[in-house]
């Protein structure tokens, strides 16, 4: 059974696309046939993060309009054999993304792929709604600050009330909390909400915590999903997330507390 997973947040700039790229790459690295779809029509970004922007010829709107086949529009990822990207249109109107067309594409993708990751645009307008409507599971990307948490709360409300699963009366969309840009130092200083604070408000299971890191920006600019970065805590955090999602047990929640460097490490100047 293939699964449709939406990566959503309500608020912009919290790391949805970064997460979509790394999460789908992580799933593919574990041998799952995975496709990641950019639903942000008009503000296409996923292709940049995935480093395939120069290979975009057709996009999801072309497929919906029946101008090209799905096969023609899918782009094979440069890092993982099992990963494909379906880019958004940069030029079309976002209303071109209609529910019937998206459902048709998802059904066709389900024949080939194990996981379909939908990268939602920010907001709660039609684009975000379309991205989440067919979801089986949802990654709620939240930053440790109140406005992001409130927007996530809103999105969770919409998922629970208006997604296809809710409308059809099926099992609800399975929700996962992913806290990104987390800085334990600033949490300790009281400048950021803690993971506990966020969970106290949102009350959904925590899938992982991604630490704030400069390497995310470098990775984005280089067109490499952060999960591929060597020796970076962000990459490890995303691998943990994918592991937990796939049901790996005994993975400790890392990067939640301030890392106390040991005396020897400090002495030897270790990072």
């Amino acid at each position: 059974m293939s699964k449709v997973i939406v990566v959503t947040s309500g608020k912009g700039g919290v790391g949805k696309t970064t997460t979509s790229a790394s999460f789908s790459s992580g799933l593919a690295l574990r041998g799952n046939k995975t496709v990641v779809i950019d639903f942000d029509v008009g503000l296409r970004n996923l292709d940049l993060i995935m480093g395939c922007e120069r290979r975009v010829v057709y996009d999801i709107i072309n497929v919906i309009n029946g101008e090209v086949s799905l096969k023609q529009a899918l782009i094979k990822d440069k890092n993982c054999d099992n990963l494909y990207i379906l880019p958004a249109s940069q030029t079309r109107d976002k209303d071109a993304l209609n529910l019937e067309g998206v459902e048709r594409i998802l059904n066709e993708l389900k024949e080939t792929f194990d996981f379909i990751v939908c990268d939602s645009p920010a907001g709660i307008e039609s684009g975000a709604f379309t991205a989440m409507y067919f979801a089986d599971e949802a990654l709620i990307v939240t930053n440790p600050e109140v406005s992001s948490v409130r927007d996530s709360d809103r999105i969770l409300g919409i998922l629970a009330a208006k997604s296809k699963r809710a409308v059809d009366g099926l099992d609800p969309v399975k929700e996962h909390l992913l806290v990104t840009r987390y800085d334990p130092k600033r949490v300790e200083a009281g400048e950021m909400l803690s993971v506990t604070d966020i969970q106290e408000i949102l009350r959904i299971p925590l899938l992982g915590v991604i630490p704030e890191s400069e390497s995310v920006l470098q990775a984005s600019n280089a067109g490499t999903p952060a999960i591929h970065l060597d020796k970076s805590d962000v990459a490890e955090a995303y691998r943990d997330v994918v592991g937990r999602f796939m049901g790996d047990e005994g993975l400790p929640m890392r990067f939640v507390t301030v890392d106390k460097k040991s005396f020897f490490k400090r002495l030897l100047g270790g990072r």
């Binding site: 709360d153 809103r154 969770l156 009330a161």
Partner: peptide
């Protein structure tokens, strides 16, 4: 029996 979320 579930959370009532902002906007609801």
């Amino acid at each position: 029996n579930k959370p009532v979320r902002t906007g609801q």
